[in-house]
Amino acid sequence: MELPLLVGVDGSEAGMRATDWAADEAVLRGVPLRLVHASLWEHYEGTSLAQDLAEPAEQVMAEDIVRAAARRARTRHPDLEVSAEVLPEEPESALVREGQYTSLLVLGNRGRSGLAELLLGSVGLTVAAYAPCPVVVLRGSHDNQAVPGTRGRVVVGVGDAPQETAAVRFAYEEARRRAVPLEAVRAWRCPVREAVREPEDGVQSAEEKAAETLQAALADAPEDLKVHPRTVEGPAHRVLLGASYDADLLVVGSRRSPGALGLQLGRVTHAVLHHAACPVVVVPQPV
C-alpha cells in the first residue's frame, strides 16, 4: 500500500498554500493526502473547562482548521482521497513521528507567528532536521501548485559523497514525475594554499575533482531522464541559492547520525531553507 502524503496545516495562509501544493503532489504521485494539525490545546484549556463546555475553544478552532483545509483540497481535486486529523501535542514531535508513516511531508514557509517570511520558523527547522521522510518546505513563489512547473527543471545539490545519494535518487524521481530535466549542481572552491603557490594548477585541480565527484554521483542516472551536470565555483549555499531562482524544486540531502544531538542540518541546508527562491526538499541521508 502506498504511503500517504502528509501536510501540516495551522490555519495560516502559508498553510493553505501548502495544502494546495500538497494536493497537487499527491495527485501526481497517485497517493492519498493526509492533513494534520497539531496543537497543545488540551494542556492550556484544562480538564475543568472541558467538562463545562461541549468542546474546548482551541479544539473547536483546530477542528475548523483541518476541515477548511480538507474542503480546500477536495475542491481542488474532487477525486483525491483526503483525510484530516487533529493531534493534541507539540507540532514538532507530532510531525516528526508521523513522518514514519508518510512518503513526503509538506510544510508552509511560516505559520501564524508573524515572523518575517524570509525566515523559516522553529517547527519547520526541527521537522526538516529529524523527520525520517523527505520534507518539503514551500519557499519562494510556487503559485500554489506542484505542477505544471513554471521554470521547467528540478535542481539537486551534490555534496562530497563519491556515490549516488538518497537526495540524488529522490531528485531523479521528481524530475521524471514532472517530465522536466534535472540539473545536478556541484559547488567547488580553490584551496587557498594551492591558489597561492600554483594558481592555474590549483583551480584546475579543484574543478576537476568537483567534476569527478559529480560524475560519480550521477553514474546510475536513468536513461530516459535528461540530466545536466554543472560545476560552479563559489560557496555551496550561494551556488544553490542562485540555482533556486531557475528551479521548480531544489533538492538537498541531510546526513543523519543516530543518537547525535543538535538539529543535524548543515550550513548549506540552513541557508536554502531560509532563503531559497523555490520549494526545498530535505532528504535524509544515513551516515
Results as ranks from 00 to 15, higher is better:
Leu118Ala: 15
Glu117Gln: 14
Glu223Gln: 10
Ser83Cys: 05
Val272Arg: 03
Tyr245Thr: 12
Leu225Met: 00
Arg72Lys: 14
Val66Glu: 04
Ser141Gln: 15
Glu198Met: 07
Leu118Ile: 14
Ala14Lys: 00
Ala219Tyr: 00
Gln51Asp: 09
Ser48Val: 13
Ala68Asp: 15
Cys278Leu: 11
Met1Thr: 15
Leu33Gly: 04
Val168Arg: 06
Ala271Asn: 04
Asp10Gln: 03
Asp224Val: 00
Tyr245Ala: 12
Ala277Trp: 07
Glu223Asp: 12
Glu13Ala: 15
His37Gln: 05
Glu55Leu: 10
His37Val: 05
Pro191Ser: 07
Ala84Lys: 07
Leu80Cys: 08
Arg72His: 15
Ala184Gln: 05
Ser113Leu: 07
Arg176Ile: 12
Glu233Ala: 01
Leu35Lys: 01
Glu98Cys: 09
Gln264Pro: 02
Leu3Tyr: 06
Ala166Val: 11
Thr47Tyr: 11
Ser83Asn: 08
Ala166Phe: 08
Gln51Cys: 06
Val180Ala: 02
Ser141Val: 14
Val137Asp: 05
Leu240Ile: 00
Gly159Phe: 13
Ala129Ile: 11
Gln285His: 14
Thr102Met: 07
Val135Asn: 07
Ser83Tyr: 10
Leu218Arg: 00
Ala68Thr: 15
Thr47Ile: 12
Arg151Thr: 09
Ser39Cys: 09
Leu120Gly: 02
Ala23His: 01
Arg139Tyr: 04
Asp224Ser: 02
Ala62Arg: 01
Met1His: 13
Gly266His: 02
Ala70Met: 07
Arg256Trp: 00
Ala94Asp: 04
Val96Ile: 13
Leu107Glu: 05
Pro4Tyr: 02
Glu92Phe: 06
Met1Asn: 08
Glu81Lys: 13
His142Trp: 03
Asn109Ala: 15
Ala69Val: 11
Gly124Val: 02
Ala129Thr: 09
Pro32Met: 04
Glu45Met: 11
Glu63Tyr: 09
Gly46Cys: 10
Ser205Gln: 13
Glu174Ala: 14
Glu55Thr: 10
Tyr101Val: 07
Arg74Asp: 09
Tyr101Phe: 12
Val268Arg: 01
Ser48Thr: 12
Leu273Val: 06
Val168Pro: 04
His275Phe: 10
Tyr44Glu: 10
Arg176Ser: 12
Leu225Trp: 00
Arg256Gln: 02
Pro56Trp: 06
Gln264His: 01
Val287Glu: 14
Val96Lys: 02
His270Glu: 13
Ala277Asp: 10
Arg34Val: 05
Ser205Glu: 10
Val158Gln: 09
Thr150Glu: 14
His274Met: 07
Tyr130Val: 06
Gly99Arg: 08
Ala146Lys: 04
Arg189Trp: 14
